[in-house]
Structure formats: structure tokens, C-alpha cells
Design a protein around this nucleic acid. Structure first.
Ligand SMILES: [Mn+2]
Ligand SMILES: [Mn+2]
Ligand SMILES: [Zn+2]
Ligand SMILES: [Zn+2]
Lengths: 173, 173
DNA sequence: ATATTGTTGGAAATGATTTTCAATAATATT
DNA sequence: AATATTATTGAAAATCATTTCCAACAATAT
């Protein structure tokens, strides 16, 4: 099977997800497994281990970070699989992918118990990343207005947004 | 002269810029040249051509985009110089650098006549980038509050921010 | 049990960006 | 104007994150 055909199927399956009106009932005992199976994906050991690392580590991990942690537990898992799984999770809407400017993408789980909508402060000197959840109410209001206005003006259907603040952290200023 | 020493000098010069209290008087007839010379940098032909391309093209250009345009006018200029100049301009605060998720950095002049503060809508399907300047007043207010609060809470000195909206453009939805 | 086929790991390829270093061009000094 | 100084440049090579290839494998259906 060629690669194109393979990803064709994945996209088809994801279409099913995205077209569903009601959101998935999340956060049950085995909601991640259910989410995978529900999309027709297999619940494999590598995927379980990668998701476990993502769930337990609250930081913003690069693919290699994740690979190293995963590798300790199950040395059989390859870096390629980590990349592939992260892409899949990203397409499923389960992880957020950030490019903060240090040349490598960073990932974090976007759904699950205790995970809240937030944005980031990035130190331009040491690269430290700080989560912040302040002003979410005001932000959400602004974003909502903005989304309405922009959808109309540019006919653009907004799905997600990212806000990055760059500057100097306490250690570096 | 080793690379470290070389960049050491550049950083030293940039310190002079950043420590200046009063902002530079911008947008005079040869303000870019003045800015370079004022920092002790040489006003070279490659830099002039690269800045000219950045000034005339309002789009979000990758290093290679810029190289190709520059190359037409002066085939002698190398891609390395384009990268180096962009990094320098970025450090001088003259260009903004974006990573929208397509694997290459994109640049645009951030100061100059007619250049306004704005953010971006990015189509996840075709990669189209749309500038928007709507809601700047409300945004600025929110951002200002946020900056104050975050500086205090996390002792973080905010210098710049980026807001990206991801979704589907009119052609792709 | 067996068949089907989605998934995996390792090696190799890719592609953007960076490094190296001798040559060059911009500026300061004479 | 000629010369000295040194920041800057270009080309080739290196680096490094990510992707592609493909035969082996393992999850699920039959
Ligand atoms: Mn975060
Ligand atoms: Mn823009
Ligand atoms: Zn820092
Ligand atoms: Zn589009």
C-alpha cells in the first residue's frame, strides 16, 4: 500500500471525527483508548506508552524528549513512531503543537482531566516556557468577538488560536 | 576571528541599541542606513538589497523567497548572507520572525512607513496567511493588562507577542 | 487458528538552517 | 589618494529535525 493511500484512509477516518456534531464524552476510565478505537485506529503498545508519557509530563516536550522517556520504558519503540504518533494525535486534536523558535516542535496534551486552556511566555534568552491561565475570561471574550468578526470579514473559519509572549524571564532580566 | 568573538561584538553593539532610552527617530529619508551605522554595522550592498526586498514585498517571505528575489537583482548574493542578515535584522528588532508550522521560518519588516501592528490567520489546509488589524484597540488593552499582571506574577518582562489563528480559509472550507 | 491490513523500526533521504574559512569590500587611518 | 584594518561575504560542507521507504510485525476480524 502506498503512503498516499495510507494517509488517505487516515484523513477519511478523521473526517468522521470532525464531522461529528456532539463532542466525545471524554475522561472516562479508558477514554483515550475509546477515542482511538472510535476512529478505527488500533490501540497499540507504542501509542499507549507515548500517551502515558504525555499525560504524566506536564511540560512542553520535543519529539526527542518524548522518545527518550519512552525509550527507557520500552527500548523497542523507535523515534519514527514517536513522530508518527504525535502527528496522528495532532490531527485528532488531542495534542497541541508549538514552535517557539528554538528549531524543534514541542507538544503537549490538549485534552484530559485537569488540562486547561492556556498560553505561553517564552524567554528569548534561556528558552524557558511558562504556562499562564490568567485573563482567560477576558481573553475568551475578545477572541470570541474577534472570531465572529474575522469569519465574516475574511470568510475564515477559526478552529484554534495560540498566543505567545516573548521576553525575559526572572533569571535572565 | 572566531565566530563566538564575532557574535560577541554584535551582541555588544545591540546592547547599545537596547539600552538607549529614547526610541530612534525613524522613517527619515535614510533611516535604515542610519540605524545600521548607528549600531556600528556596515551599510553593505547585500544588506541594502535584502532590505529593499523586505520593504517592497508586504508578504511573509521565507529566507529562500527572499534569496530568489534578491538573486535576480544581484546574482552574487548568497543564501547564507540572506540568513545572516535576517538574523541580524531580527536581533535589531527590525523584522519579525514567524513559524507558522510549514517547516520554514517567515519574515516581515516590523518597522517603517505604513507598517502597522497586526496578527495572522493561517489556513491549516493550504497554508494561506492573512494579516488582520481588527480589534487592535481592544487587543492592546487586554495585552496591556495581561502584561502588567504577568510581569508581576511571573516576574517576566514581556517584549513582544504573537497571536495566531488557525483554521480554514474561504477556499478550503 | 488463520487471514487481513494497519502499524512499526531502522536505515536512508530530505530540507532548512548553520558552520567554516579564505576572499572581499567597507570603513578608518595615514 | 593610498594603505591598513576588520567586519562581511559566498561557497561548500556540516548539522540537525523531520520525513520517507519498505520489509517485518502485531492488532483485529474472520
Ligand atoms: Mn503549555
Ligand atoms: Mn503579517
Ligand atoms: Zn530566561
Ligand atoms: Zn486555505
Amino acid at each position: 500500500m502506498t503512503r498516499e493511500a495510507y494517509y488517505g484512509i487516515i484523513l477519511l477516518k478523521l473526517k468522521i471525527i470532525f464531522n461529528k456534531k456532539e463532542p466525545f464524552v471524554p475522561f472516562g476510565p479508558r477514554w483515550l483508548e475509546a477515542r482511538f478505537r472510535g476512529c478505527g485506529f488500533r490501540w497499540t503498545f507504542p501509542r499507549q506508552v507515548i500517551l502515558d508519557v504525555l499525560t504524566k509530563e506536564k511540560k512542553h516536550l520535543s519529539a526527542e524528549d518524548i522518545f527518550l522517556k519512552v525509550h527507557k520504558r520500552y527500548p523497542g519503540i523507535g523515534l519514527t513512531t514517536v513522530y508518527r504518533t504525535l502527528e496522528l494525535l495532532f490531527n485528532m486534536g488531542l495534542v497541541r503543537k508549538y514552535e517557539f523558535g528554538d528549531g524543534r516542535a514541542r507538544f503537549e496534551l490538549s485534552q484530559g482531566p485537569g488540562i486547561e486552556h492556556h498560553h505561553h511566555l517564552i524567554c528569548r534568552k534561556c528558552g524557558k516556557i511558562i504556562d499562564y491561565k490568567d485573563f482567560v475570561e477576558d481573553e475568551q471574550k475578545l477572541i470570541k468577538d474577534l472570531e465572529e468578526r474575522l469569519s465574516k470579514k475574511h470568510n475564515f473559519k477559526i478552529e484554534t488560536h495560540q498566543i505567545h509572549f516573548y521576553g525575559l524571564c526572572s533569571n535572565c532580566s
